[in-house]
């Protein structure tokens, strides 16, 4: 297991470096000038030149990439020249908000999706299984920004039960939780369907395996068989899905962050790309790439722990 972990971490580092170099290249290929966007019509050519120099954009591209990677290796994400604050400080402040949102979304989606999937598998081909199927496909098909808009209109604008904008006052847990409900609902709803379908499919497969049939022959209660023996194996594809799904969750979070005017890393990347704020884009991209690679590494490691055969495949 230790050898597996070392190999997996090495691979993760390579992926991060390649992703950062690729993204750095892509950002610089797109035309646009941060000075013109940020400084607006007041920008004189001298001011623009000064800003380029400050941002290091006057140096050759390769030098910029190497210098950036060197800084990242030392844990320095650079400085945001517009707000004069360290990029790391800005990104991690936003990352907190996104992680809370993503975790809240995926938690409620799992709490509902896994039992629904188990229920569908156990009561397969019954009316309620078909009902769960229709529900699951239905919520998968609806984009999260549509759910966000309609839930906002219904619960915030019409009923005025929940707030429409912001993330709540810092330090006020209940206020923050209240601001989290609608965005988490919007992002998590589609995942309920995904998880339910995935758990159902893998559960059906597992329920027909020999060791489950043997457990039944021994007369073990069905709840023990389902939740203790079958779910442990059936959950593996879901764990993998959650690991790789972090990227999708962050992109869904962008919509929720825009619709609900919440701070977050998705919106930070979007705004920074639009304003060509390269240091902030790269800082945020590095952190989200690391987050993505980290989550896939963790999910793969959990898989390897649960199923030793996986360790041999890397």
């Amino acid at each position: 297991m230790l050898f597996y972990l070392l190999k997996r971490i090495g691979l993760a580092v390579v992926i991060v470096v390649v992703a950062v170099v690729l993204l750095y290249s892509m950002i610089h290929v797109v035309p646009g000038d941060p000075a013109s966007v940020i400084l607006g019509p007041r920008a004189t050519p001298e001011m623009k030149q000064e800003l380029h120099k400050l941002m290091g954009l006057d140096r050759p591209f390769v030098v910029q990439v190497v210098s950036f990677l060197g800084k990242v290796a030392r844990g320095d994400l650079g400085m945001d020249y517009f707000s004069q604050r360290p990029v790391a400080e800005i990104v991690f402040k936003q990352l907190d908000e996104t992680l809370v949102l993503v975790l809240a979304s995926i938690t409620w989606a799992m709490l509902l999706g896994i039992p629904l999937g188990c229920y569908s598998a156990v009561f397969r081909n019954t009316f309620s299984d078909k009902l769960v199927g229709v529900f699951s496909i239905g919520v998968i098909a609806v984009p999260s920004f549509v759910v966000a808009l309609y839930s906002l209109l219904f619960f915030a604008v019409t009923l005025k039960w929940l707030p429409a904008i912001g993330a709540g006052e810092s330090g006020q847990f209940l206020d923050q939780a209240r601001h989290l409900i609608l965005p988490a609902f919007a992002i998590g709803l589609g995942w309920v369907g995904y998880i339910a379908r995935l758990v159902r499919a893998s559960m059906l497969e597992v329920l027909n395996e020999n060791h489950i049939r043997r457990a039944r022959a021994f007369g073990l209660p069905e709840t023990t068989i389902v939740f203790h023996y079958a779910l442990k194996l059936a959950i593996l594809p879901t764990v993998t899905l959650l690991g790789t799904g972090i990227g999708r969750l962050i992109s869904s979070a962008v919509f929720a962050e825009i619709v609900f005017a919440r701070p977050g890393i998705g919106k930070l990347i979007f705004d920074s790309v639009v304003s060509r704020n390269y240091p902030l884009v790269m800082g945020a991209v590095v952190v989200s790439t690391v987050l993505f690679v980290l989550s896939t590494t963790i999910s793969d490691s959990i898989n390897a722990m649960l199923d030793p055969r996986v360790r041999e495949r890397l």
Binding site: L152, A156, V157, K160, A164, I165, G166, V259, A261, D271
Partner: peptide
């Protein structure tokens, strides 16, 4: 003061009583 770029979001925020 809430920074909200999108006017439609702000309108809904107003209608929800947040602004």
């Amino acid at each position: 003061i809430f920074p909200i770029d999108d006017e439609k979001t702000a309108e809904m925020g107003f209608e929800a009583g947040d602004l």
